[in-house]
Design a protein around this nucleic acid. Sequence first.
DNA 1: CTGTTAGCGCCTTCAG
DNA 2: CTGAAGGCGCTAACAG
Lengths: 329, 329
Amino acid sequence: MTEVAKYVGVSAMTVSRAFRQDASVSEETRKRIMDAVDALGYVLDQSAGSLSSRRTGFIAALVPSINNSNFSDTARGITDALDNTGLQLLLGYTDYSTEREEQLIESMLRRRPEGIILTGGSHTQRARRMLENAAIPVVETWEIPERPINHVVGFSNSEAMSLLVRELAGKGYRRFGYIGGTTARDTRGSQRRSGFLKTVEELGLGVGRLISFGVPPISMEQGAQAIISMLERWPDTEVVLCVSDLSAFGAIMECRRRGMRVPEDIAIAGFGDYEISSICHPRITTINVDCYGIGKQAAARLLDALQTGDAVRNEITLTSYKVVLREST
Amino acid sequence: MTEVAKYVGVSAMTVSRAFRQDASVSEETRKRIMDAVDALGYVLDQSAGSLSSRRTGFIAALVPSINNSNFSDTARGITDALDNTGLQLLLGYTDYSTEREEQLIESMLRRRPEGIILTGGSHTQRARRMLENAAIPVVETWEIPERPINHVVGFSNSEAMSLLVRELAGKGYRRFGYIGGTTARDTRGSQRRSGFLKTVEELGLGVGRLISFGVPPISMEQGAQAIISMLERWPDTEVVLCVSDLSAFGAIMECRRRGMRVPEDIAIAGFGDYEISSICHPRITTINVDCYGIGKQAAARLLDALQTGDAVRNEITLTSYKVVLREST
DNA sequence: CTGTTAGCGCCTTCAG
DNA sequence: CTGAAGGCGCTAACAG
C-alpha cells in the first residue's frame, strides 16, 4: 500500500480510504489512486486490515456434509444472504461428528469470525465453552435444540415426521416401517425416528418397524440394502418412511428392480424434498424443508445481531416444512 | 495472549511458542501454559499471527457450483488433502460466471491465500493478471486449458465424450443425439459437445442432433424437457448423450413416464458417474470421472509447490476417466 | 479532504 | 529453554 501511496504521491491513509466507499476522498484523488492500483496490480491485504479494524469480515458455518444437497442449499442461502455485505463465508464440514465439529470450531475461531452458524444443537462441552468465550453471535440451525446457545433457525424434525405419518395413516396405511441410520451421530435423524415411533404408537398402529443401516451420511445404496432387510423381516409392511429422500430413492429403485410396484405393492416416502424426488419415477412423497431459507435466515439473524450489537438474544426462528404427497405413496 | 502470559508468569513469546509443536519449550512450561489457556478459554488469533509470520494458512478454491456433487467431491478431495497440514480451505462458487470468478478471486486474494485452485481454464483478463501478480501457485482443474496459468490437474472433456460415442457406436447405435446447456458459460460442457460432434462426424454417422436448454447449472428437470424436444424433432433418435448424469436421469425418467422403454426404445447416457446413476433403474451408462482425485491431486500439487518453493511449474497432471456401460444403453 | 501517530496481536530475530 | 525489541500492513483517532 505504501508503494501505491508513493506512486500517487499521497499518504497510505488516503489510499486506504480510497478503498472504502463511505470514506471521504476527492473523486480525482480516488481515480488517480485506483489507476495506480491497477497499474501496480495491488490487492488490499485484508488480514492486516482486520487486525487493525478488529473486523475480519468472516462468518463461519459448519454443516455435516457438503455433498448433501440439503446442506449445500443451506450454504448457498448463507452465501447469498452475505452477498454485498462484505462478509465472507468460512465453510467447514463436520462429517456428522461432534469431535470434528469441536476441532473445526477451534480452527474457525482462530480466524476470529464475526458470527458462526452451526448445524444442530449437539456440541461437545468444550465446543460450547469456546463459543461462549468467543462472544460472537451463534446460530444453530436445522433443529430446535433443547438448550440453545444463542439464536436458532430451524424446525422440529420430530413433528415434521409425525405429520407425515398422520397424513399417510389418513390415506389408510396401517403397517408402518422406518429406515434410518444409526442415530448416535445424527440428531436430526434420531428426532425423525422418534417422531415416527411416537406417532405410530399414538395412532394405535402397533409398533413401528425399524431398520438401521450404518452411520451417516446415508447413501442411496444403503436405502436399497435397508429395504431388502425390511421386506425379509416384515414382508407385509405397507408403507416405509425413510430418514431422507436419498435412502427412499435407493429403496424405491431396488423395489422396482425386483419387480415390485410402488406404491401398489409397497409405498415409500422420504424426507427433505431433494430435486430427485420430483423427477424420478414414481415421484417420491416427502417432507419439503426450506433448506435454502434456513441458510438465508440464519445469516439474516447473524447480520441483525451484528448490527444491533446482539441486543436480541436466544430468538427462535421456526422455518416451514410441509408434506408433499406424490406418486410413491 | 498477554493475559495468558501474565497468568502463567512467562512472556508472551513463550506462550506463542507453546502453541507450535516444533518450538522449544520445556514440557512443564508448556503444560502450565496450556492449562491456563484452557482455564481462560483463550483461542489463538491467527490473523495476527499470519500478519507477522507472512503465512495465512489459507488455500483458496473456486468451483462453479457447490450444489453439484461432482464439484463437492472435488472440494472434499481438497479438504481431505489439506487435513493435518494446518492449511484451511477458503471455498467459493462462481456460478459458472467468469465475472463472478473475477470478483471472487479478488476477495480471496485479499486474504492472501498461499495457493489457489480454480475450475477450468477460462478467466477474465483481469483475473489472470491478479493471479500472476499474486505470485502464488495456481492449479486449474477439471479440464486442460489451452493456455495454462501454472499447474493443471484435469482431463480432456472432449476426448472423454469422444470415447463414449465410440463405445456406443461399437454397440451398433447410429442416430446420435446430444443434450447440453448453452455452452457460452460452461467450457467443460462445450468441450463435451464438440467431442461429441467431432466423433459422430468422424464415424460417418451423419450430423449429431443437438438440443440445448438454458444456462448451467443444468437440472434434472431440464433434462426431462430436453428429451421431449429431442423426440419431437428427431423421433427416430437411437441414443442420446447428455452433458451430465443429472440431465440424463431427468431424460430417462421422463421417457419411462411416457411409457418408453430405456434402452429398447431409446438409449440414454450421461457424464460424471454421480451416485444416482448406479442406483436408479435402469442404471445409467456414463463416464466415470475421478472428481475426488482431482481435488486431492490439485491440493497435492499445491502442497508440493509450497514446499519446493514452486520449482516445478506448469506441470499437467492427467486424471483418469472411464466409460461405464450400464443398463441405459 | 488529507496527513500523522499509534497500535492491532502475534511472530521473527537476536540475545542471554 | 526463555525473554526483549521491533515490525508485519493496515486503519482508528485525531489534527489540520
